[in-house]
């Protein structure tokens, strides 16, 4: 029962992030002067199974201005292309804080 609640929360997070990110991307697109500073940064993840990492990378693809490019061989590092890499530390902090926790609540008992 608790798991069901966590799954519903994860789904709601998915939808919310999708809307926020599309709004951010649209703002970037219709700005008259292109003000993006793209780049690729690495993210160490604590998740282990393939299933969790798949979920996390899908979620990252839906966050504002980030897109998973590659997963390292040891499946512990994700390479993420960010649209505006103002502060990579802040970005990865945010991903770790909200998404990993939400996914862990679903997959771990």
């Amino acid at each position: 029962m608790k798991k069901l609640y966590a799954t519903a929360k994860l789904l709601a997070l998915f939808v919310k992030e999708l809307f926020i990110s599309s709004y951010a991307v649209i703002l970037h697109i219709i700005r008259p002067r292109l003000a993006v500073r793209p780049g690729i940064f690495a993210l160490e993840t604590e998740l282990e199974s393939d299933w969790e990492i798949t979920l996390l990378s899908c979620l990252i693809c839906l966050t504002p201005g980030t897109l998973t490019l590659d997963v390292a061989r040891d499946s512990r590092t994700l390479f993420i292309h960010a649209m505006d890499i103002g502060d990579a530390g802040l970005l990865s902090q945010q991903i770790k804080g909200s998404f990993e926790k939400a996914i862990m609540e679903v997959t771990r008992p």
Binding site: R37, P38, G39, I40, F41, C58, L62, L67, L69, F79
Partner: peptide, 28 residues
Amino acid sequence: APVAGHLTGRAAYRSGVSLWKGSVRDDL
């Protein structure tokens, strides 16, 4: 949709498409 985006990005990187000149960082 996210899976397709990830696949295009990965294919682009592995087939050697270079980043835009304004890119600031490349950990990969």
